[in-house]
């Protein structure tokens, strides 16, 4: 943790909103992205990310610096998301966005900069779409580790800190999640191929 961060944490703990905003400015985008991948749509992601950051602000006085601030923050983000998903499950609430959700145009802009043939671009977009859907369909515990490990690139240690489970659990869960994701993709690829033909 840098000295600046320590200082900002200290000031935030005493309730200084500006310091807090400065403190989280390097994390909020990633927090939002984690929430987006776990929740599966932008609207929920925004709600959850804001909720989580508010909670971070509220409980910052309990943060004693045992772990890195970022790990602690992302842990709250994943917890908020998972709590919400569990709550919805209990209420038998089905999110319309999470099952059928098509992507917007920003993809193309980003992709055109790559030197790729139109075909391969199409393939990649298609593949992304498939992966996105496959991830969305996974059980939330497995989805979370995929998001944290393979999309966000956190280390095993960090993930075990965020999810509050042992390193062994994280390892086996990641292994299981990846296999599951692969099986799901295989399935959906075959389906889409059939559709095209």
């Amino acid at each position: 943790m840098s000295d600046l961060e320590k200082l900002l944490i200290k000031k935030s703990q005493s309730g200084d909103v500006e310091s807090f905003e400065l403190l989280i400015s390097s994390y909020d985008k990633r927090a939002y992205n984690i929430a987006y991948r776990i929740m599966g749509n932008e609207e929920d992601a925004k709600d959850m990310a804001q909720e989580a950051l508010l909670r971070v602000f509220k409980s910052l006085k309990d943060f004693k610096g045992q772990a890195a601030f970022s790990t602690w923050l992302y842990r709250i983000v994943t917890n908020v998301c998972l709590d919400e998903l569990r709550r919805r499950k209990n209420e038998k609430y089905v999110s319309m966005d999470s099952s059928i959700h098509t992507e917007d145009g920003e993809l193309h802009m980003e992709l055109c900069s790559d030197k790729e043939t139109p075909e391969s671009v199409y393939e990649r977009i298609e593949q992304r779409e498939l992966i996105r859907n496959a991830i969305r369909e996974m059980n939330e515990d497995y989805r979370t580790v995929i998001v944290l490990r393979d999309i966000q690139g956190f280390s095993y240690d960090e993930i075990s800190g965020m999810l509050d489970c042992s390193l062994g659990t994280v390892k086996s869960r990641i292994n299981r999640a990846r296999t599951m994701l692969r099986d799901k993709l295989k399935e959906s690829m075959e389906l889409s191929r059939e559709n095209i033909v």
Binding site: E42, L54, I131, I135, L185
Partner: peptide, 28 residues
């Protein structure tokens, strides 16, 4: 698959994300 996961685009924060958060923080 892992490479593809890593390739998933990062999405930008919604425009009003920070202003909204600012408001809520002040309320808090």
């Amino acid at each position: 698959i892992i490479a593809a996961c890593g390739n998933l685009e990062e999405i930008e924060l919604p425009q009003n994300f920070r202003t909204e958060l600012h408001q809520r923080l002040n309320e808090q």
